[in-house]
Design a protein around this nucleic acid. Structure first.
Lengths: 231, 231
DNA sequence: TTTTTGTCTTGATATTTATCAATCTATAGG
DNA sequence: CCTATAGATTGATAAATATCAAGACAAAAA
């Protein structure tokens, strides 16, 4: 793969502390590829041959069962996905597809495991990454089990408001996909948006305005133990 | 702490490979305590001062929000809990209470982090453990988002049937708690059990009989990507 | 520009799930 | 043995959510 990609990958927390030789070895063994939108990169159940790194574009992780499908998360640059499957040498539990034209680095899983076994810095970085992801997954379970769809939407809006820093912002994805992410149907999301109007929420197309954050918070009751990135 | 507890802890995958001196240091710094049933050991939001190991008895991890509570998992001997919070030095995302009289080893989180930073074998064992837990958490999310309550119950029964190895077995917990674990109310669990009768399920008290596993499977459609321990 | 395609919304309806209230049942104490 | 007590069940009802069908809208293709 071209060396031009090295720096931003090296800057990832996951790879930042590992021995130079090991990093170079990993990169030498890797491939970079640019994929068009809507390409299924991996399919759940397959063997995890590569650790993937999204360098540009974005990737959706999703899962299907019995003819149904649900969106699990979106992977933005620069970060990795399916680390746990790679480490455990186990089948993928989620599928992945590009959402837009995306540049993906493919690092052979076998090399990752080999270097993981010999590079303590790398191993420790993996620990931190997995602990973080595990905690995020626990938060998602709590969100799903403890809240109604309307409450999930309200808290979701507060979370992106937080990261946007303003009371007006755009939804970062199609409503169709947002509905799936929140665990509801598109029809229900439409109605949920209406049901939040009394709390000062107005959404026009993908443009969101929170007219009264305090009011919405009274309804949503956000908790750092569910909604924070980490706290 | 008494040395008599050492062997079974040492046998845990998590501690099996670490340097002897480090293991001994960890154990020296630790406490063992026996708790009566229904004692809240930790409360979500608190700082993670100790990594906990259940040596005997059992512990429920649960979470609450806005007056609601949900059961997240049960921890059986011998295994650890709140490893991720310990490693990240972050607040607990779940609370824990003893279900019965339980013997718990408390290992100071600071010592765990110190040794994690210096003992590569320990770090690698933590990776494996966290990867496993992360994957389990992903399975739970899929179970919740892709299946109805009835489907979750059906697959749950097939899973414990699998581990029991026979078509007759006992529910390993109160129905009340099972309902919470499956993300439904106790009333709904009662009705769900009835609704599985056409598929050969009969439950008398806590005694379960699956008269026709194949029939139940046709309904439940179990998937290794949701229901297996790992595959 | 027009057409096409897919998303989004809305209304009507059905299903699922929760809530409330009233037993019923098992069981641990007295 | 007999009661308290908590869990479990049942029925009635309400609320939440999904499904189906139609139409509105908007983005992409012709």
């Amino acid at each position: 793969m071209p060396e031009s990609e090295f720096p931003e990958i090296r800057n990832l927390h996951l790879f930042a502390d590992m021995a130079n030789a090991n990093f170079t070895a990993l990169m030498r063994a890797s491939y970079v590829q640019t994929f068009p939108p809507q390409i299924e990169l991996i399919t759940e159940g397959e063997r995890s041959d590569f650790l993937h790194v999204v360098v540009s574009g974005s990737v959706e992780l999703f899962s299907a069962w019995n003819g149904r499908e649900t969106s699990m998360t979106t992977v933005e640059p620069v970060s990795t996905f399916i680390l746990a499957a790679t480490i455990k040498d186990a089948p993928y539990l989620m599928s992945a597809r590009t959402l837009e034209k995306s540049r993906i680095v493919l690092i052979p899983s076998q090399d990752v495991r080999t270097i993981f076994a010999s590079d303590a810095h790398f191993a420790r970085a993996i620990v931190t990454e997995l602990a973080q992801r595990y905690r995020t997954s626990i938060r998602i379970t709590k969100d799903l089990k403890l809240r109604s769809g309307l409450e999930r939407l309200a808290n979701y809006l507060l979370r992106i408001q937080q990261s946007a820093g303003r009371d007006e912002f755009d939804l970062p994805m199609e409503k169709r996909r947002l509905a799936s992410l929140l665990g509801m149907t598109p029809e229900n999301l439409s109605r949920a948006i209406k049901n939040l109007q009394p709390y000062g929420v107005s959404i026009d197309g993908s443009h969101v305005t929170l007219h009264d954050r305090a009011d919405l918070e009274r309804f949503a009751k956000p908790s750092p133990l569910i909604d924070a990135d980490d706290a």
